[in-house]
Design a protein around this nucleic acid. Structure first.
Lengths: 199, 199
DNA sequence: CCTACCGATCGGTAGG
DNA sequence: CCTACCGATCGGTAGG
């Protein structure tokens, strides 16, 4: 029997479970993330793992939040000092490409994988994934409109259309990296961005 | 006890299992495609279902083949009479958009979902998915090079780059249709294609 | 945080 | 094509 842990230690354990869960889910999906597997990899009992969350769905939701936090730190946070308008938009996209290129999570972009897995279902997990994507799309749209109003992009730019095309670039980048291990994919993504956002 | 069926009937049953499996897999993935679920929906016993294939992996491989056949009938077959070069390439892309827009499979593009599900693994199923995608990319590349040699596309066109960008358009179309039920996505896809392939 | 357990479901087999 | 079964694993609970 393990000694009872302090509140701080318990919180650390909880965070370690979430981090491990994020790595598992990026490879094998949010359903491949089973309590038994988490327990084995954490060298804990299943009840020990589950006690921090209550249900598997709570684990999944915590992992979705952790993925959003990681993305926020790796992309928008890294370019927060770049001046607004087109420079900021370009920096955001470059940070995004770099994030995918560096393969921080073993299975690539968590949200792309989770969206494909849950898009045919209902429920809180699907809603959380869709909500995070919508937030980030809104952010991109704001950067685009700012670039237009600053005269950095043509006045007839359709922000939603550009969001669609930027999203497409990143989906394809993740797809070619993960399925084909195509190392020329980041370069192709950058060339497309070049065309979309000028030199 | 059901009467023993003829060879023809057995083949039909096998095909019905595959068709049902393709629909299930497009929504819940190739792992959500369980033998028990197939048996319930087919109103057969698990052993009855499994007897046609031997293993679950064989079912998965048969479903991948069926998905490729469906795609072949819905996209390249439909435009086989369109003259080569840019007209053919445009017709192919329009048939592809239309195929995704009509949502023939309840869960959208099977290959996108399957690729996201299996891209972190090894094995025959993953190889079959990647192989089908590679085949279709080769096809696209041939159409592009034909259009270049006919003078329909600029001589400095990079075929692999254009394949990347066309693939991106279709991944995004499927993504926005399935996750967000965004009915403006087909229009956005067509506008991007317009820009990529001229008016 | 553990052991010990629950009913359900998984892929698959034996035998007919 | 069926019934009847196998061991393994699923999410989750009781009790400490």
């Amino acid at each position: 029997m393990s000694p009872r842990k302090s509140v701080v230690e318990a919180r650390q354990t909880r965070q370690r479970i979430i981090d491990r869960g994020l790595a598992i889910a990026s490879v094998d999906g949010l359903e491949g993330l089973t309590i038994g597997r988490l327990a084995t990899e954490m060298e804990m009992s299943k009840a020990g793992v589950l006690g921090h969350f209550g249900t598997k769905e709570s684990i999944q939701l915590a992992v979705v939040d952790a993925a959003a936090e990681m993305f926020a730190q790796e992309v928008p946070q890294r370019v927060r000092d770049v001046p607004p308008g087109l420079p900021h938009l370009r920096a955001v996209c470059e940070a995004w490409v770099s994030y995918l290129e560096r393969n921080i999570l073993p299975g690539g972009c968590f949200f792309t994988a989770a969206a494909a897995e849950f898009d045919g279902r209902g429920g809180p997990v699907r809603d959380a994934i869709a909500g995070m994507e919508a937030l980030w799309q809104r952010d991109l749209s704001i950067h685009i409109r700012r670039a237009v109003s600053l005269g950095d992009l043509p006045p007839d730019t359709d922000p939603d259309q550009l969001v669609y095309e930027l999203w497409a670039v990143m989906l394809a980048l993740n797809h070619f990296l993960q399925l084909n291990h195509d190392r020329s994919a980041p370069d192709r993504a950058r060339r497309t961005l070049h065309r979309l956002l000028g030199t």
